Computed example of a mutant assay.
Amino acid sequence: MDSYISYFLLVFMSFFTLINPFGSMPVFLSMSSDLQPKQRNRTARKAVIVAFFTLLLFAFAGNYIFQIFGISVNSLKVVGGIIFLMVGHDMLEARIGRTKISDSEKQVNAYVNDISITPLAIPMICGPGAITNAILLMQDAETTVKKGVLVLAIAAIMMLTYFIYYGGTKILHRIGDTGTKVMMRIMGLIVMVIAVEFLFGGLKPILVDIIQSATNPQ
């Protein structure tokens, strides 16, 4: 029993470090600042649910998916970097805020659905690091019980992420409209820095492989 508890803590802490819900929470607040509390909570809930099932999908079938489509984790990092770069640029120019201002409930719902899936669920919560971690940990889980513990740990980190996002909404009431706009631009800059890290983190191994293949042809 102690070994399973230790394994749960190991999995939980590894995902907590990679997902870093405290780091992504200000981005979530910036992107959902003009939404009503109920809509903001629905956005957070949908984001963690989508991220949870995405992680499970890659945990159980990640290797097969990569093999079928011929993709790699490095390619995933490049795509994630491009998505972050676009979102960060929009946040810097406050385009996200302008997109949200609408009297149409249909448009608001569409916006909630859009940001809850991308970029919140993928790749902010369920990023390349978390996906790789899920695949590797599932490969190391020899028994059915360990696989169950892994799924439980992923569910626990998703619940914690939701509560962190939910609790963070109280910050918006304190900083006001001006503070929200300032925070959006600051977080936009940070998201763009993360994008560059993702982009070059994925491009470097790809370029190294290309150079090695060119210099050492088979």
Results as ranks from 00 to 15, higher is better:
residue 144 T to F: 10
residue 93 E to K: 15
residue 142 E to K: 09
residue 185 R to W: 08
residue 171 I to M: 10
residue 116 S to P: 09
residue 131 I to T: 09
residue 190 I to C: 04
residue 115 I to V: 14
residue 131 I to G: 02
residue 137 L to Y: 06
residue 157 I to R: 04
residue 126 C to H: 08
residue 90 D to Q: 14
residue 152 L to G: 14
residue 135 I to C: 06
residue 184 M to H: 06
residue 174 R to H: 07
residue 109 N to Y: 00
residue 96 I to N: 12
residue 71 I to W: 10
residue 144 T to E: 14
residue 123 P to K: 03
residue 130 A to I: 05
residue 131 I to S: 00
residue 155 A to W: 02
residue 173 H to N: 11
residue 144 T to C: 01
residue 192 M to T: 08
residue 87 V to W: 15
residue 124 M to H: 05
residue 153 A to V: 10
residue 159 M to G: 13
residue 85 L to W: 12
residue 71 I to R: 03
residue 189 L to P: 01
residue 146 K to S: 05
residue 118 T to P: 05
residue 136 L to M: 12
residue 75 S to W: 09
residue 160 L to S: 09
residue 69 F to D: 06
residue 90 D to M: 13
residue 186 I to Q: 06
residue 76 L to K: 03
residue 132 T to F: 10
residue 88 G to T: 04
residue 105 E to Y: 04
residue 175 I to L: 11
residue 146 K to L: 09
residue 135 I to M: 15
residue 155 A to K: 00
residue 142 E to L: 05
residue 179 G to K: 02
residue 96 I to W: 11
residue 180 T to Y: 03
residue 108 V to G: 04
residue 98 R to A: 01
residue 118 T to R: 00
residue 153 A to L: 04
residue 98 R to Y: 04
residue 170 K to H: 12
residue 158 M to N: 10
residue 100 K to R: 12
residue 119 P to Q: 05
residue 77 K to S: 12
residue 78 V to W: 05
residue 114 D to M: 09
residue 132 T to V: 07
residue 119 P to E: 03
residue 79 V to A: 15
residue 190 I to M: 13
residue 147 K to W: 05
residue 172 L to M: 13
residue 77 K to Y: 12
residue 176 G to V: 01
residue 133 N to E: 12
residue 154 I to K: 03
residue 81 G to D: 09
residue 74 N to K: 08
residue 180 T to V: 06
residue 131 I to H: 01
residue 96 I to A: 02
residue 127 G to K: 11
residue 72 S to M: 08
residue 145 V to A: 11
residue 167 G to C: 13
residue 118 T to C: 14
residue 72 S to I: 13
residue 78 V to T: 11
residue 160 L to V: 15
residue 116 S to V: 01
residue 166 Y to C: 04
residue 148 G to W: 06
residue 98 R to C: 07
residue 184 M to V: 05
residue 167 G to T: 10
residue 160 L to D: 07
residue 108 V to F: 01
residue 187 M to C: 05
residue 160 L to K: 10
residue 80 G to I: 13
residue 145 V to I: 05
residue 132 T to I: 10
residue 179 G to S: 08
residue 80 G to K: 10
residue 98 R to E: 13
residue 153 A to T: 07
residue 117 I to L: 07
residue 139 Q to N: 14
residue 124 M to D: 03
residue 160 L to A: 04
residue 80 G to S: 15
residue 154 I to G: 02
residue 146 K to R: 11
residue 109 N to H: 07
residue 86 M to I: 15
residue 168 G to E: 00
residue 177 D to I: 14
residue 112 V to A: 02
residue 153 A to D: 07
residue 140 D to Q: 13
residue 121 A to R: 12
residue 161 T to F: 11
residue 165 Y to I: 01
residue 167 G to A: 10
residue 104 S to P: 01
residue 109 N to Q: 12
residue 87 V to F: 15
residue 122 I to A: 00
residue 158 M to Y: 03
residue 173 H to V: 06
residue 187 M to R: 00
residue 145 V to M: 13
residue 162 Y to I: 02
residue 113 N to F: 01
residue 185 R to E: 03
residue 73 V to K: 08
residue 117 I to V: 15
residue 107 Q to S: 02
residue 95 R to Y: 09
residue 166 Y to E: 10
residue 186 I to M: 11
residue 141 A to D: 08
residue 80 G to D: 06
residue 128 P to Q: 00
residue 114 D to N: 04
residue 177 D to M: 11
residue 126 C to K: 05
